[in-house]
Amino acid sequence: MQVAVINRSHHPLPAYQTEHAAGLDVRANLTEPVTLGPLQRALIPTGLFLEIPAGYEAQVRPRSGLAYKHGIGLVNSPGTIDADYRGEVKVLLVNLSNEEFVVNDGERVAQLVFARYEAIEWQEVAELSQTVRGAGGYGSTGTK
């Protein structure tokens, strides 16, 4: 699949870091570092503008290394970039640690995963089919 991209950053385009990686690492495009205190969040620009093909979305996901080493995640994970969005891709980071974290220009702050989706049409019915689970919610499976 080809995705049209405008790169207004001074960094290379997002890239897969290994042969079988699902996500492309996205870099911060900053004029100065951004410091995130504990529980603070910030919208980090990337300088990237995408034209995602219809029927696809780009999912913005956290980087496991930042999460494990520094407690840095995404507020809305995964974030969805819709096929009709043409603005700059920005990453909504949150610091879930007890220590400050500095985001520097060029830092790999998230990853993009492209996924196909299906648009649905609602079919209103009077009742749903029965299953073994039924209406059992959180924590209901595996207990008897």
Rank of each mutant, 00 (worst) to 15 (best):
V103K: 03
A21Y: 00
I6R: 12
L24F: 11
P38F: 12
P53N: 05
I44Y: 02
E121C: 07
L128K: 01
H70T: 14
D84R: 08
V91W: 00
L24M: 15
H70I: 12
I52G: 00
S140C: 09
A28F: 01
D82F: 10
G65D: 03
A83P: 07
F114G: 06
V103C: 02
A110S: 03
T143D: 09
D82Y: 06
G47L: 12
A119Q: 11
E107C: 02
A126P: 08
A83T: 10
E88I: 06
V103M: 04
Y16W: 15
Q40S: 14
L30W: 04
F101I: 11
A28P: 02
V3E: 02
G55K: 08
I120N: 13
N29K: 06
L50C: 06
G65C: 02
G136T: 08
D84L: 08
V91H: 00
L48H: 01
D105P: 06
Q111T: 07
L48W: 00
R133W: 08
R116M: 07
Q40P: 13
P33N: 13
N104Q: 14
G139T: 03
A135W: 09
Q130R: 12
Y68V: 15
E107Q: 10
E19S: 14
A22W: 09
I52F: 01
G65S: 09
G23V: 04
G134Q: 09
L128R: 01
G139W: 03
N104D: 09
E99K: 15
P53F: 03
G55C: 05
L39K: 14
A4H: 13
E107Y: 01
L39Q: 15
E127G: 04
T80Q: 06
F49S: 03
V109H: 00
V60L: 01
R86D: 12
E19F: 10
R41M: 13
N7W: 04
L36T: 05
N29F: 08
G142T: 15
S140G: 13
Y56M: 13
T80V: 05
A126L: 13
A110E: 00
D84M: 05
P33K: 13
N76D: 11
G134I: 07
K90W: 05
A15G: 09
L92C: 05
G71W: 08
S129A: 05
A54E: 15
V109Q: 00
V34Q: 09
A58G: 15
E51P: 04
E100I: 14
N7H: 05
L50A: 03
D84G: 07
Q17G: 15
R108K: 11
T18Q: 06
V113N: 02
E118L: 12
G134C: 14
V89L: 10
E118M: 10
L36D: 04
L24I: 11
V103Y: 00
Q130L: 06
E107P: 00
Q2M: 13
K69V: 06
G137L: 04
G71I: 07
V113H: 02
Q40H: 13
L50P: 01
I120D: 09
R133V: 06
A83K: 05
L66I: 03
G37C: 11
E124N: 07
V26P: 10
L92F: 07
L92V: 04
Q59T: 10
L39E: 14
E51I: 09
